[in-house]
């Protein structure tokens, strides 16, 4: 399922959040939207999901050739994982995951047995089988994160959208989840976009990196390409390649991420 974004503009009042975004994500790709805060990356993700709408004008969004620009969020079938997870506190883990199936119209709603089977399968895949009856506020951050992911996957989304998926977790869990997500993606091959401000995270997990800054796409490329050939000063600066004396320069992956993690605290 490919995602095509054509000349999307978005202004909030007088602030230009996005100024003409064109982007094509191929079927089965895992793409990171990387940029500093205020670069418009979360806005772009929300526009794809239909939670925010582009300014009136020529902009379009296609899911696998279908124009979804005029569709409400509930009609788009985009799996969205929120930074806060947004789990339904009054439902068990099982019911959270089953929610997207239960709200379907009677004609397309799976039978109770099918729902059971599908939810249990997902619980197994995110390694939460024994937590099915628990309520979200009794789970750890990493577990909640996986419930949110399973819930998004339950509707067989056309595209998976993750907003700062590891943002709220502590460093160790974050590392584990990154690897797990990459492995998970190898299995499912679901077209995925995720937003992050952490370059190590973007480089480690994704097939391609989209660097956003000041409402525009500054560069698109594989992690290796971007690192080897920064397109402009913005990218150089953002990646910390500008200042030779900095400790964070090219590859010592662990040092770099730790330094940023400390910053974030």
């Amino acid at each position: 399922m490919s995602v095509v974004i054509e000349s999307i503009h978005k202004t909030f009042g007088r602030f230009n959040a996005l100024e003409g975004i064109d982007l094509k994500v191929e079927t089965g790709e895992l793409v990171a939207l990387l940029g500093p805060s205020g670069s418009g990356k979360t806005t772009l993700l929300r526009i794809i999901a239909g939670l925010e709408f582009p300014d009136d004008g020529p902009g379009n969004i296609f899911f696998h050739g279908t124009d979804v620009t005029e569709r409400d969020a509930y009609e788009r079938r985009a799996g969205f994982v929120f930074q806060s997870y947004a789990l339904f506190q009054h439902m068990t883990v099982f019911e959270n995951i089953a929610f997207g199936l239960r709200v379907r119209s009677r004609a397309t709603r799976p039978s109770e047995a099918e729902i059971n089977a599908r939810v249990n399968d997902l619980l197994g895949r995110v390694q939460l089988t024994q937590f099915a009856k628990r309520f979200p506020n009794t789970l750890s951050g990493g577990q909640r994160q996986r419930v949110a992911l399973a819930r998004a996957l339950a509707i067989e989304p056309r595209v998976l959208l993750l907003d700062e998926p590891f943002g709220a977790l502590d460093a160790k869990v974050r590392k584990e989840l990154r690897r797990w997500l990459r492995a998970f993606h190898e299995q499912t091959r679901l077209t995925t976009l995720f937003v992050t401000h952490d370059q190590e995270e973007a480089f480690e997990v994704s097939d391609r990196v989209v660097i956003l800054g000041e409402g525009r796409i500054q560069q698109i490329g594989s992690p290796a390409e971007v690192r080897a050939n920064p397109a402009n000063d913005f990218v150089r600066k953002f990646l910390g390649l500008d200042d030779e004396s900095e400790l964070l320069i090219p590859s010592p992956l662990h040092e770099g991420s730790r330094a940023r993690e400390l910053d974030a605290v």
Binding site: A73, Y74, G79, F82, F88, F99, G100, R104, A154
Partner: peptide, 12 residues
């Protein structure tokens, strides 16, 4: 968030 999440999951 939870209302947006419900919408993304297909709830009217």
């Amino acid at each position: 968030d939870i209302e947006e999440a419900a919408a993304c999951l297909g709830a009217t």
